[in-house]
């Protein structure tokens, strides 16, 4: 009877140790890809620490516009044809109207490069 009581007492001690709060194991070293999330919510919504919160999922991509059948030409807005700016029109050089003397000593008036030369043979009287 005494032996039965000792065994029972041992068993009781053994079960109590097992049900005691286990110290929390140290958190695993965070991997470069893991992202821990601070838990500040109620336990019922808390995310278990060992769960790696996935990176923010990308927003759903904008659906590409559907393209019509290949055999149908797709209207493409033709870019406006670029016309080169008109080249600046160069003004003709103004005539070089000067006065001077010819090699023989007669006086002239006008552009020495004028296309036509007029010699006025005149007497002042």
């Amino acid at each position: 009877m005494k032996r039965l009581l000792v065994a029972s007492f041992g068993l009781i001690l053994l079960f109590g140790a097992c049900s005691a709060d286990q110290p929390l194991p140290e958190a695993a070293a965070s991997s470069p890809t893991a992202k821990s999330v601070a838990l500040d919510s109620a336990p019922s919504t808390a995310t278990p620490f060992h769960t790696v919160v996935p990176l923010s999922t990308p927003a759903p991509s904008t659906p590409l516009p559907t393209v019509g059948p290949v055999d149908e030409p797709v209207a493409i807005d033709e870019p406006a044809t670029l016309t080169p700016p008109p080249s600046p029109t160069r003004e003709p050089d103004p005539p070089q109207v000067i006065s001077g003397q010819t090699a023989e000593g007669a006086f002239f008036l006008g552009d020495p490069q004028a296309p036509v030369t007029v010699i006025d043979y005149s007497d002042f009287l």
Binding site: P94, P95, Q96, V97, T102, A106, F107, F108, L109, G110, D111, P112, Q113, A114, P115, V116, T117, V118, I119, D120, Y121, S122
Partner: peptide, 11 residues
């Protein structure tokens, strides 16, 4: 003359 068309010489 002033327009550069003619060169005038007085002889």
């Amino acid at each position: 003359v002033q327009t550069g068309k003619v060169k005038l010489i007085f002889w």
